[in-house]
Amino acid sequence: MRLTGALDTLLDRTIVPGYSRIGYVVRRTWWSDDVPDGALAGRTVAVTGANSGLGAATTLGLARLGASVRMLCRDTARGEQARADVLAACPGADVEVEECDLSDLKSVRAVAARLRDALPGLRGVVHNAGVLPPERTETAAGHELTVATHVLGPHLLTAELRPLLVADGDARVVFVSSGGMYTQPLRIDDPEYRRGDYNGTKAYARTKRMQVVLAGLWAQRLAGLGASVHAMHPGWADTPGITDSLPGFARVVGPILRSADEGADTAVWLVGAPAPGRTTGLFWQDRAPRPTSYLPFTVTSEADAERLWDYCAEATGLA
């Protein structure tokens, strides 16, 4: 076990082996807690950004565990195609497409209301939807697009679905973050990236840091209510998020990129396995908890974390 732990840490710290398919393949050999098919029968999970990449792979993984999955998609036509692909791979699965643009708070409230009307409870919410714009863009409500999609939308959706999560009794909320967040501190002094020259990759990493901090805050608020909250990062997976948004990076590491299913594995496991329900507020990769910071300047103080909560509450109208 000590040797395995040392190897796991080495993979994590050296980044390229740990984040690539190499890390997944090596770590897969020592996992002993696979979730059996049917483990989520009778339970419902909502997945945002489910029309492609990690979201579609997460939907398929959950469907194979017997879950009913609500695919929350901005583009419902692409969502329906993804649904058809899931049904082809998992005949008889219960998957439905719901229109939802995470960057639009009205859209978030609308889908949450529909789900509250239709469902008695919700086993999980996987906050997967993501964007990486090349230039600074604002939503109709005046919020920078990455923070609206990665932070404000998920925050509001979690709040709106809280009654369903509590009703389940063993619910899981999962924020799909990114290893890129290790490069950025919590910029609560400039959450909307109004200062300096805008950089899409940096904006993405900043909001992924926010997600990890927000997951910890939600874990505190839902503690003792039958819902655990976690963040995870999928490593480097062969998905549109990398191949379309970072084509140069994708060309370099293409041969060792993970498949979408491999990237989604930990998110599916966090929703389906018993062990994650006994903890909360952790940051995971390849089914193991990871540090949230390696560099001193990226460590978040409790005061700044609470400032993030206040910002999210005010921006989403929950204050």
Rank of each mutant, 00 (worst) to 15 (best):
M1P: 05
L7V: 10
L7E: 03
D8K: 03
R27A: 14
T29Y: 02
R43M: 06
T48Y: 09
G53Q: 07
A57R: 07
L60P: 06
A67S: 15
V69P: 13
M71S: 14
D75A: 12
D75P: 11
D85H: 11
A89G: 13
C90A: 15
P91Q: 14
C100E: 00
K106L: 04
R109N: 03
A113L: 07
R123E: 13
N128D: 04
P133R: 01
E135V: 09
E144Q: 06
T146E: 06
H155K: 00
L157R: 00
T158R: 00
L161E: 04
P163L: 02
G180M: 10
P185V: 03
P191C: 01
Y193H: 05
K202D: 13
Y204W: 09
A205Q: 13
A205D: 11
A215R: 04
L217G: 04
W218N: 06
R221I: 04
L225C: 09
A227P: 06
P234V: 08
A250M: 06
D261P: 08
V268Q: 15
L270G: 13
P274D: 11
T280L: 05
G281M: 06
A288K: 11
S293K: 03
S301K: 04
E302Y: 00
A305I: 00
D310M: 01
A313H: 02
